[in-house]
Design a protein around this nucleic acid. Structure first.
Lengths: 146, 146
DNA sequence: TTCGATGCAAACACTTTGCATTGGC
DNA sequence: GCCAATGCAAAGTGTTTGCATCGAA
């Protein structure tokens, strides 16, 4: 498939190799889709479940590698939960609404936010890479329960 | 002082006590100001430097306590750096510009972002608590170095 | 055949917890 | 005096690394 071919090419460009393990990790992210957030542990378990033996150490190494290649992107969510998601080219920044009580998360887009981020970057002499808004709140169910 | 008096009162309301350690941790955050982000280790070192012996375990316990009381707020920054800042009432949401290369951070405000967050919350039936935009980019110096 | 990648286990950094003791109220 | 809070050290997390072996190119 296209992406994996690109992966092989990109790796070779860095003197690195395309291994079944790397393939499987990236495949998994493609299978679950761009909006999904997976932790290292999630990736490891899902691969085991699919009978693809990959060590946890390799999962960590591969996540770091793919993120450094900008194929994955690390999320910026609260409190020690490192998660990654597919950073496909056609996908634009999306933002998160997180329920402070139950942890439920929703995603949304906003051109306004993008613009505000670009303005701030320009003002401080930064070259914009990405912007993420995290809105904390109480979801309907939790707000009702309080 | 006003804040500590409030602290004592809030703690009593929960059947908890105002100890010198808790006082010192909150004082430290007030001394450095609302815009500063401190890790548990930072707090511990600064207190030691000020001759205030507080164990690291207590620092962690206190940060969690003060955050649960909404006196401190935990930041949502990338990659395993848990940091806290003072959540004073008069302070409005502020956002972060983080250099992906050197980690330098700048802060900024944006009414636009606040509005976008409020819109998104309303649309998904959330009650808004706070919104934080994290913009990743390359600061001037790092962009020039690439 | 070569040298990068893997698996395993040990090492790490950060955070939490059990327990005896201290001290706020 | 009671019971919450502290300090210490031990136990957990999640993540990284050293090293022998494996395998992509």
């Amino acid at each position: 498939m296209a992406v994996s071919g690109g992966l092989r090419h990109d790796l070779h460009g860095r003197g690195q190799r395309l291994t079944p393990q790397r393939q499987r990790v990236l495949d998994l992210f493609e299978r679950v889709g761009a909006g999904h957030h997976l932790s290292a542990e999630d990736v490891h378990l899902q691969l085991l479940r699919a009978d693809a033996r990959v060590s946890l150490a390799t999962v960590y190494r591969t996540l770091r590698l793919l993120a450094s290649m900008a194929l994955l992107r690390e999320l910026e969510l609260p409190e020690g939960s490192r998660r990654f998601e597919l950073a496909s080219a056609e996908q634009h920044d999306h933002h998160h609404l997180v329920c402070a009580a139950c942890g439920r998360t929703e995603e949304f887009d906003s051109a306004q936010v993008l613009q505000a981020g670009a303005d701030a970057a320009a003002k401080h002499g930064f070259r914009l890479l990405s912007s993420r808004l995290t809105v904390r709140g109480l979801c309907g169910a939790c707000a009702a329960a309080v």
